[in-house]
Write a protein that binds this DNA or RNA. Structure first.
Lengths: 140, 140
DNA sequence: TATTTTTTGTTTCAAATGAAACTAAATATT
DNA sequence: AATATTTAGTTTCATTTGAAACAAAAAATA
């Protein structure tokens, strides 16, 4: 009964450790916070997403998503268009400025990840990505 | 350059997924929030800890720790005593009520973890615990 | 040993957060 | 078709959060 090993606890500490370091860097370097970063990643990968879809993909609160999208539109990184099938929803996508931003941020992010992953063996890297995938499937 | 695979991002989503589910349960069942839970875990494992030590162990902000400890003392789960060597600091430890609480909470927490881990193979479980340990060493 | 710097922890205050209530539209039910 | 229910997203408001300023003690330096 070793609580030091308690998984959710360990995982949240680990996740905090990693994102604490990253958050400050993003703010200083690009003027975006973690919420904005998460939403930008989704928008970068997905052409037309609604707030609901972002909620599903990020596990973020809908209020937070609503406000983050508003900010990103105000900052001029994101375009919003009416949803063709649902008048309540909007489709969001990166505009040119957003694309440009992401092309600056991503290499930076990947460099950080690289630095972290370089300290794992190739087997460990495989295991890690396998485990993350598996957990995400388990947790719906 | 697959951002879906971006580790810090994946990890924070995963960690959120897991703790979102847990947080509500702890609040309903035991009236404690995640901050309190984290500090209680530390106090359960360590006999005499200061706020500083808790910060090191949990990655939590010092203001949050200060307030969480105050709450836990008020709720009657934690005793505080002057630090023998440093008049600025205090030593904290679970009192009887705190011990009693943890003996109720822990089996519950472990049951949840069990449920999660039962969906991994024995190899995957080993890999997971190895990886968490390794990351924690890498990240100081 | 007097003075400066650093460390530990708390308080203040402005910003971030999210539950609850709300609007408006879509879907289901009668 | 009319009405009720559910869904998508926003606003309000009370709470949580943490940066910055602070107090007090310890450690370092002169």
């Amino acid at each position: 009964m070793d609580l030091n090993q308690f998984l959710p606890y360990q995982l949240s500490i680990l996740s905090l450790k990693i994102s604490n370091g990253i958050a400050e860097h993003y703010q200083d370097q690009f003027g975006i916070n973690i919420s904005e970063w998460r939403v930008l990643v989704i928008l970068y990968k997905n052409p037309d997403v609604t707030a609901k879809r972002i909620a599903q993909l990020t596990q973020m609160d809908k209020v937070r998503i609503s406000r983050t999208l508003k900010t990103l539109v105000q900052k001029g990184y994101v375009a919003q268009r009416p949803h063709p099938l649902d008048a309540r929803a909007k489709n969001y996508e990166l505009n040119d400025r957003g694309q440009y931003l992401m092309r600056a941020v991503i290499p930076d992010a990947l460099r950080y990840e690289e630095e972290l992953l370089s300290q794992l063996t190739s087997d460990e890297r495989d295991q890690l990505s396998h485990l993350i995938g598996k957990f995400n499937r388990i947790l719906k």
